[in-house]
Nucleic acid binder design. Structure first.
Lengths: 161, 161
DNA sequence: TTATCATTGATTATTGCTGACCTATAAAAT
DNA sequence: ATTTTATAGGTCAGCAATAATCAATGATAA
């Protein structure tokens, strides 16, 4: 089982997402690193790479693990009790300063989770470009952060539309 | 071997637009920069130039990419062609300068006619406030006009030729 | 002529993947 | 109760394969 469609990491990610979706009772799944690695015919540390790059708090996941006999890796899908909670989470993610590039990546995640539409993302990206500093995509700016927080906070808190 | 018809950038643009039109399932296409460059017998960074100059959010497109093995560039077409008349009409309404107040009234109308959603309107209003002049709601500004036209144009982009 | 657009290629940054080495845990042995 | 051993998972540095950026240059249009 390898490289069927995309790349290894992508396939492992998809598999984990499937498990999470199938899970009914809990808001987490439990894995054994070694087994997963065998399943995908790869080195165990590959699993860590996938978790580190695709199941981060920014993307809405938490990891808990244990070593030794009966070791495991648990992946929690973070859920938000209220719009305010979600909005606060996003506000924290944005922080005091953000770059165009970081904002772009955040918007990707939000659209993937269907928290914003493509059209909304387009509008936000245009606005960001209008007020972004000239120093390039990676330059952090306080103003970017403030506008982005206002926009996303408004979308998630409000009940427009 | 070039300048067969127009210039390289133009040809690459056309090719990408063709791919986007042919795409049925999704609202995006996925490219490999290196392959496209080989296809057009040019340097890879040429592709970036085409994307930067012709597939911007202002023109109704969003780009996502990844480096490394199995790298890719995805181009999303966010909007679908809408009547030219409409976007032209709106552009004329906005004119060379507009005040926050006038913009607000225009957005109300557009929402009433369901050309934009409440959420989209919220985003535009926030963006306008961030670049509005200090002189108050009634002060006309060229920059307000430009951003507003860009945003609404982005949402109502048509296939140019 | 001058300003903008197009093209190139050198350099830098990111992503995916592996393997060697490190740490933690539980069960077994003492 | 303590030590040992087997069995997990974690970290990190390094390589290879991409894509992005940037500055220099050429071409074209106003």
């Amino acid at each position: 089982m390898q490289n069927l469609s995309q790349n290894l990491s992508h396939n492992i990610e998809k598999y984990i997402l499937t498990l999470l979706e199938e899970e009914q009772q809990e808001n987490f799944i439990s894995l054994r690193r070694k087994e997963l690695a065998e399943m995908f015919e790869c080195v165990p540390s590959q699993i860590n790479y996938v978790l580190r790059s695709r199941f981060t708090p920014e993307q809405g996941y938490l990891i808990e693990s244990r070593r030794g006999e009966h070791g495991y890796i648990k992946i929690f899908r973070v859920t938000y009790g209220s719009p305010d909670e979600l909005s606060e989470h996003v506000t924290n993610l944005i922080g005091g300063e953000i770059s165009l590039y970081e904002a772009h990546r955040l918007l990707e995640v939000l659209q993937d989770r269907e928290l914003i539409t493509g059209r909304e993302r387009l509008l936000i990206e245009i606005a960001l470009r209008y007020i972004a500093p000239d120093e390039g995509q990676s330059a952090r700016s306080r103003e970017l952060s403030e506008m982005l927080k206002t926009m996303l906070g408004g979308l998630m808190t409000d009940d427009n539309d």
